[in-house]
Computed example of a mutant assay.
Amino acid sequence: MPPPRERKLAIMGYRSVGKSSITIQFVDNQFVESYDPTIENTFTRQIKVLNQEYKLNIVDTAGQDEYSLFPVSYSLDIHGYILVYSVTSAKSFEVVKVIYDKLLDMVGRIKIPIVLVGNKTDLHMHRKVTTDEGQKLAQTWNAIFLETSAKDNLDVQEIFKKVILEMERQDGNLPEEKKCIIS
């Protein structure tokens, strides 16, 4: 069996959208009820995707807003990005668009491996951003889209599997996914 491939991911989004909750759910299989604003944490976990082990180093970033300056470290040696918004916050959805634009400017490439995540689906009665809006945004970015609930552990593992597959695809290690668009 080949040695694990090391990959570094950054999880980014507006404050209190659940970036840390998603990360801790993925790494430790637990949901943390209390909210403690993150400055920046790095987590490590191994995961197997398509018979290949990956050692993921996940940079859980501080919440960004439209005026945040990104540290250069968010573009160095990062293989993929998870951009998170809360389905209960239109503001977080707008901010994730700004983060994406800043990311493209900083990285200097047109195509980067991104998974767009609408979190907090367990709070469906407070929903402000529709699934359709999230899907359309991801489509314009040519990104993967998922909705999740870190609290209910809904598709949390899937987020990380999808970003790995997208990184491998863009590195030329996987064939392009065939997409059928019906309008």
Rank of each mutant, 00 (worst) to 15 (best):
I22P: 08
V27S: 10
K111S: 08
I39L: 14
L69I: 14
A150V: 02
G134H: 10
Q52L: 13
P175E: 13
M12D: 06
S73K: 00
A150S: 08
G80C: 02
S89K: 05
F26M: 02
S73L: 06
G80A: 00
L9F: 15
T42Q: 13
H79S: 11
Y74E: 01
V96L: 07
S92N: 06
S92W: 02
E158D: 07
V49M: 13
K111A: 08
M12P: 08
E6F: 06
N51C: 03
F26L: 10
K120Q: 14
R7Q: 14
T130M: 03
P113E: 01
I47R: 06
Q64M: 10
R109L: 11
N41M: 12
V117L: 08
W141F: 13
G63M: 10
L174H: 02
E158H: 12
K161M: 08
T131C: 06
I99C: 05
K19A: 11
D36T: 13
V163A: 00
S183F: 11
K48N: 14
K179C: 04
K161W: 00
K178C: 03
L69A: 09
T38P: 03
P175W: 03
F93T: 04
T38G: 00
T61N: 07
I99A: 12
F26I: 05
T140E: 07
N41W: 03
L116K: 08
H126S: 10
P2G: 10
N41S: 12
R169N: 03
I22F: 11
F31Q: 04
N41T: 05
I47Q: 09
I114K: 03
D155Y: 14
K97N: 11
V115D: 00
D152Q: 10
Y54H: 09
T130D: 03
V129G: 06
L83H: 06
T42H: 05
V27D: 04
I114W: 04
V59G: 00
N173F: 13
D122V: 09
V32H: 13
E176L: 10
C180R: 07
L9C: 04
E168H: 07
L9H: 03
Y35E: 02
I112Y: 04
T38S: 15
I47N: 04
E147K: 07
V156N: 02
Q170N: 12
T121F: 05
Y85E: 01
F160A: 05
E40S: 14
N142W: 02
L146C: 07
Q25N: 15
D152T: 04
R15V: 10
N142Q: 01
T61P: 08
K19Q: 07
S73M: 09
A150W: 08
A62S: 15
N57E: 14
K151F: 11
K55E: 02
A10I: 13
G118A: 13
E147F: 12
L174I: 12
S68P: 11
Y85N: 04
Y100D: 05
I114T: 07
L165C: 12
S89G: 06
S75R: 07
